[in-house]
Design a protein around this nucleic acid. Structure first.
Lengths: 109, 109
DNA sequence: TGAATATCTCACTGGCGGCTGAGATGTTAC
DNA sequence: GTAACATCTCAGCCGCCAGTGAGATATTCA
């Protein structure tokens, strides 16, 4: 699968640019302590905003901002708690997370 | 492996902060079009700086700056071409790249 | 030797993104 | 009702980083 080392000292200046847009977008989301912490916490099951804010040592509105980014990217979704609708419980969209990992794997896989 | 949904409306405010430092570091490196493009190109085999700069449409010194970041992170290494030592050929450290992917997988795996 | 090529280093700067603060919306309890 | 709680939205500030430019080092060729 991997071509041999180039033996002639002639660099090729016509190589195509690789398409890394998806991977860069996903990496940009993961390249933040708060967002990465959210995704890691949600791997263990749903959590409400105040739980994640407390665990991460961040303010609620800051965590909410980051959750909005993850929601727009389709990586997480929210639903009100059945017994106490005051709390919004977030959970991962595992299919979308799987696609995100696949995008990263196209670069460093 | 995954706990059931919380049925009581009582958020837990004493959850531990997940350790995502490694994943955030790796994601920060991937969250750039030029660095991601470099790593993707090197997946197909070694390339010299001028090849990557041409393919990515970036200046040599800019690509060199990004390569320095990747080198400090241990993801790539360089060696002069045997036949023409004017060219510095970079290649991926696959073991380090594997560890980087593993770190990301601890967050979105 | 000198010129041309390939790459590196580093100081500087402009723009992007994270944190904050203030206010709005929705929910529960009294 | 209203008070307290949970979350959201958005504008503004500020620090950081990618790109630039200038100069240095290394290698080849004439």
């Amino acid at each position: 699968m991997r071509p041999p080392l180039p033996v002639v000292g002639e660099p090729r200046l016509d190589l195509p640019a690789p398409d890394v847009a998806d991977a860069v977008g996903v990496a940009g989301l993961l390249a933040d302590r708060t967002r990465a912490g959210i995704l890691r916490m949600l791997a263990d099951g749903p959590h409400c905003v105040c739980e994640m804010a407390a665990a991460l040592g961040e303010r609620d509105n800051n965590v909410s901002n980051h959750l909005a980014r993850l929601r727009e990217a389709g990586l997480v979704r929210a639903a009100r708690h059945e017994a106490n609708a005051r709390f919004l419980y977030y959970e991962r969209d595992e299919a979308a997370v799987g696609r995100a990992l696949a995008a990263l794997r196209e670069v460093i896989g």
